[in-house]
């Protein structure tokens, strides 16, 4: 890491030409991606992009501000339901409905941030967990929101474009994801981000330094909820169908796992965590159709386990990957990346 000489250097988006180059390469790749692969993989990319937005948002809260949340599926649900309700019942255009519902989510985030001022650790996790569970119950109770039957997404029209295939939606989603990522990065590099980090490291010290704890802690919740709300609104259009049971506690736990496995307090890590776990989540079901491994697992189940439950290997592998990553590197995938980078920098010494 080179020494930063002034503030502007620190907040600059690209520290070097090389970085900018790779950024461009990535953008070109993302733009060309839908033409390189089958439509199914575009759907996978969309699903992962949604996770990336949530995980970045959650990382702002967990990784940078040092709070914990097991209730982000609640904000996700608010975003998804808000967007669909505003569009179908109040005929908002999509581009207005999405930020408005994300703002609603962030209001809830602010409210949840209030008790969080005094709570930490397991106390905070139970409080947020309760929030996540309650929100879906309330949504399911209200018939106006479609009740337990769920809601279908309407046609998505933005200006002259009809975005109803995975490919079309992909581009909208990528633009938003890149914007949200850059936004998060900027937020972290500036005054607000530094306040968050100060709170994480020592909140009392931060307060004595003049960081307004009430303001910044609730802000962290609100920003995080905003990100998750945006992702929720987009998710409604990826799946095109939502129902309350979808936003389960398991979903919140997965989001948290993505943050931690990716790397706390790192945006690159969030992206990596969301990609890895999101991909595993969708793809592990194919484990049994792999050559060799599939038949080996089947014979193993026949002799020691049961064939009817063989699909549960997904769970075992998923858990194993999570445990192993965390055992060997508390900073997650991001930590592994840093270590490899360091190793190769001084290689062969």
């Amino acid at each position: 890491m080179d020494m930063k000489r002034d503030y502007y250097e620190d907040v600059k988006l690209f520290t070097s030409g090389v970085g900018f180059f790779w950024f461009l390469v990535l953008m070109v790749f993302l733009a060309a991606y839908p033409f390189l692969v089958k439509n199914y993989y575009v759907y996978v990319a969309n699903y992962i992009a949604i996770n990336i937005i949530v995980v970045i948002g959650l990382n702002i809260l967990v990784g940078y501000t040092g709070q914990i949340s097991l209730g982000h599926a609640g904000f996700f649900a608010i975003g998804a339901y808000g967007t669909l309700i505003l569009m179908t019942k109040l005929s908002f255009p999509f581009l207005l409905a999405l930020p408005v519902s994300a703002l609603i989510a962030s209001v809830f985030g602010f409210l949840l941030g209030l008790p969080a001022l005094r709570l930490e650790g397991p106390y905070l996790s139970i409080a947020t967990l309760g929030f996540g569970l309650t929100i879906t119950r309330v949504i399911g109770k209200i018939e106006f929101f479609g009740g337990r039957q769920g809601l279908h997404a309407p046609e998505l029209v933005i200006g002259p474009w009809h975005l109803n295939t995975d490919r079309d939606f992909y581009y909208l989603l990528m633009v938003i994801t890149v914007l949200m990522t850059v936004g998060a990065r900027n937020l972290i590099k500036t005054r607000v981000g530094r306040a968050f980090v100060a709170i994480r490291d020592a909140d009392i010290a931060a307060e004595t330094m003049g960081v307004n704890l009430v303001f910044y802690k609730t802000l962290a919740f609100a920003v995080s909820a905003f990100y998750t709300g945006i992702a929720g609104g987009l998710f409604a259009f990826v799946l095109r169908f939502i129902e309350p049971e979808l936003f389960s506690l398991f979903m919140s736990i997965m989001f948290l796992a993505m943050v931690v496995v990716g790397g706390l307090g790192s945006i690159m890590g969030s992206i990596a965590g969301a990609c890895l776990l999101g991909w595993l989540d969708l793809q592990l079901r194919n484990i049994l159709s792999l050559p060799y491994i599939g038949s080996w697992l089947e014979s193993l189940s026949k002799s020691y386990f049961s064939l009817t439950g063989v699909s549960n290997i997904q769970f075992i592998l998923f858990g194993l990957i999570m445990v192993l990553i965390m055992l060997f590197e508390p900073l997650g995938i991001f930590g592994i990346w840093i270590r490899t980078k360091k190793y190769w920098k001084t290689w062969p010494f």
Binding site: L256, A257, V260, G319, L320, M322, M326, L327
Partner: peptide
């Protein structure tokens, strides 16, 4: 996260 992983296993 480790305990969650164990839970799944």
């Amino acid at each position: 996260v480790i305990t969650i992983g164990l839970e799944m296993i």
